[in-house]
């Protein structure tokens, strides 16, 4: 690689170790990486501090490169070479945005030393199903970012924002842990939903049991064992456990089918739901209109269909203003 202009002066011993460390780093991210490989890596690392520092140094940068993936919009399977160019232009576009995540990303420092962390993210209106190493499935709803370390020894997921439905493969020896800021959910095998936005957190259990508690240093005292049908809503410093019918739970999961299900839902809340999925924002103007309640099922990405219903059925005034659909009395 003598064509690299930035190549520092080379001395053989350090260079050799560096290349070996890079090779380990590359191999440990392959799918076929197994316990025996890990033992071999551990052995190599403990052979000498020179190995450890070389590995730490490369891992610090390489681990950080994964942070660039956080803002990646999932690209549909294209088959041709197109996605590559798209990714590169996205990188440039989001360069400024990257700076924002950087603070949080690197404040820890420790995360760099964890096993390989994979980042999954969906854009506005996105929906993606991820199958993990242990056979568990995670379905990501719109504008969701989560990081996962799932391998033979670890089952950890961080929900950084958004909403996801978890179907966890049963494994009593390795609890599956989902961390949402300063709260976490611990499970052995079950189905549950987690939703996180700026101010509140919701966990709904569809099947099995999960434990919901604060992480170390999080708000103390509140911890709950949740069974099927239980829903916990937790704003910053409180926690409310309630029981939902299977019908209500099914409605909460409407997004998995691409639909929004409303049941005595105010238009104010309807707008919030639609706006989670679409660039075109629904605005309900005026308190009278906001308090109107509706039942019904709509396609999450079809604001126009809702607008037609608002006009024809509810007798409301609908006006298109650029990226906004304004509904008023």
């Amino acid at each position: 690689m003598s064509d690299l202009m930035f190549e520092p002066p080379v001395s053989a011993r350090a260079r050799q170790i560096k290349e070996r460390a890079a090779s380990w780093l590359e191999q440990r991210e392959r799918d076929e990486w197994c316990e025996r490989d890990q033992l071999a890596l551990d052995a190599w690392l403990s052979e000498s501090s020179a190995h450890t520092v070389a590995y730490l140094r490369l891992e610090a940068t390489w681990g950080r490169a994964a942070r660039l993936a956080v803002l990646r919009t999932p690209v549909p399977e294209a088959g041709d070479g197109a996605p590559r160019r798209k990714i590169r232009s996205l990188l440039t576009t989001f360069a400024a945005g990257l700076l924002i995540v950087a603070g949080a990303a690197i404040a820890g420092g420790l995360y760099l030393l964890r096993p390989v962390e994979k980042v999954y993210a969906t854009a506005l209106g996105g929906h993606q199903t991820v199958r993990l190493f242990d056979g568990s499935n995670i379905e990501l709803n719109t504008e969701t970012t989560l990081r996962a370390i799932v391998d033979a020894r670890h089952r950890m997921v961080w929900l950084d924002r958004g909403e996801a439905f978890f179907q966890i493969a049963h494994d009593t020896k390795h609890p599956f842990i989902v961390i949402m800021g300063d709260r976490r959910v611990t499970v052995l095998g079950t189905k549950f939903l987690v939703r996180r936005d700026a101010s509140h957190l919701e966990v709904a259990v569809m099947e099995g049991r999960v434990r919901f508690d604060p992480t170390d240093g999080g708000p103390s005292s509140e911890s709950a064992l949740l069974a099927s049908g239980d829903t916990v809503v937790a704003p910053a410093n409180a926690m409310l456990v309630s029981r939902k019918s299977s019908q209500e739970l099914a409605e909460e999961l409407g997004w998995r089918r691409g639909v929004l299900v409303f049941d005595s839902t105010t238009l104010a809340e309807v707008a919030i739901e639609f706006n989670r999925y679409n660039r075109e924002q629904l605005v309900i103007a005026g308190p009278t209109a906001q308090r109107i309640k509706i039942d019904g099922t709509f396609r999450a990405n079809d604001v126009a269909a809702f607008a037609r219903v608002a006009q024809a059925v509810l007798g409301l005034h609908v006006e298109n203003r650029g990226d906004q659909v304004v509904v008023s009395r």
Binding site: M1, P8, E19, A22, L25, L58, A60, T61
Partner: peptide, 14 residues
């Protein structure tokens, strides 16, 4: 990949 891993650290830290 191994070339890239080395080069990125060298550029970033070096």
């Amino acid at each position: 990949l191994t070339d890239g891993i080395c080069a990125l650290s060298d550029m970033l830290y070096g």
